[in-house]
Design a binder for these strands. Structure first.
Length: 248
DNA sequence: GCGACAG
DNA sequence: ATCTTGTCGC
């Protein structure tokens, strides 16, 4: 699958900011689709000594559980890619660091995706277009940001029970929710991206949280990303060992 | 000028 | 994001 929108990625902060201002006008606020079958979750991990990114895209199908709203996910497909990233991590510009390495993974996907979930912000962003929102807009797919910490906004601490939440405000506007995804754990910062509303975003994410703070699909791709990084590091250390032996 | 600051 | 062991609480 290919983006329906395109713009340069090899840009500096100033141009990236202009792109964000231009794209945010295109974001659509609408109720989340009722019938969701497939969701995509993405994540990228790094090492501390180089600029190599270990990207993962996972496709999961929703399994309706007994009765009401809750559901679980079934892993359907995993795509990975290892590539050095160009853009540095700058708060507010995460899209320009991570999306370039994620795009080739979407290109390999042919099945339909109903929702994209990303480890980061949706519209809860200084210019209203965080990683999840940007990604959803590029493919014109509903998207939700599920971050482990706040980028922008004000809130009061939610209750300590799973499901407790408070609104995330920017001025007088509600841009997301601070969600307690597990008893007594640090809350998640959930915000809608493209084609989604604040309440729908939180409800959907909460239903994807089984027994951990991080929702199942993101937790899974995060795990795969870290495994990929460790296996590659081991591989590289073995290679350099062989080189060392052959030279001595 | 100072504090805040997704991953 | 990454480094990193034990430890406190449910």
């Amino acid at each position: 699958m290919l983006p329906v929108l395109n713009h340069p990625w090899d840009v500096g902060i100033a141009e990236a900011r202009e792109i964000q201002y231009r794209l945010r006008e295109k974001l659509i606020q609408a109720p989340l689709l009722q019938s969701i079958n497939t969701i995509a979750a993405v994540d990228v991990s790094y090492t501390r000594w180089d600029q190599v990114g270990y990207a993962v895209l996972g496709l999961f199908s929703l399994i309706k559980d007994n009765g009401d709203e809750k559901f679980s996910v079934k892993e359907e497909l995993i795509k990975t890619r290892i590539e050095s990233v160009k853009f540095p991590y700058v708060p507010g510009y995460l899209s320009f660091r991570e999306i370039p390495i994620l795009l080739p993974l979407f290109k390999e996907i042919s099945e339909n995706i109903d929702v994209i979930i990303a480890d980061g912000q949706g519209i809860a962003h200084p210019r209203g277009i965080g990683l999840a929102a940007h990604l959803g807009l590029l493919f014109d797919i509903a998207s939700i940001g599920c971050a482990k910490s706040k980028l922008i906004g004000n809130y009061t601490e939610p209750g300590i029970r799973k499901g407790d939440y408070s609104d995330l405000f920017l001025d007088q506007r509600i841009i997301g929710r601070v969600l307690r995804s597990r008893n007594r754990c640090k809350p998640l910062f959930v915000s809608p991206g493209h084609k989604c509303l604040v309440p729908d975003a939180m409800d959907f994410i909460l239903n994807l949280c089984s027994k951990y703070r991080i929702c199942d699909p993101i937790r899974r791709v995060d795990e795969i990303s870290k495994q990929l990084r460790k296996s590659q590091q081991l591989k590289r250390s073995k290679e350099s060992y062989e080189t060392f032996i052959s030279q001595s």
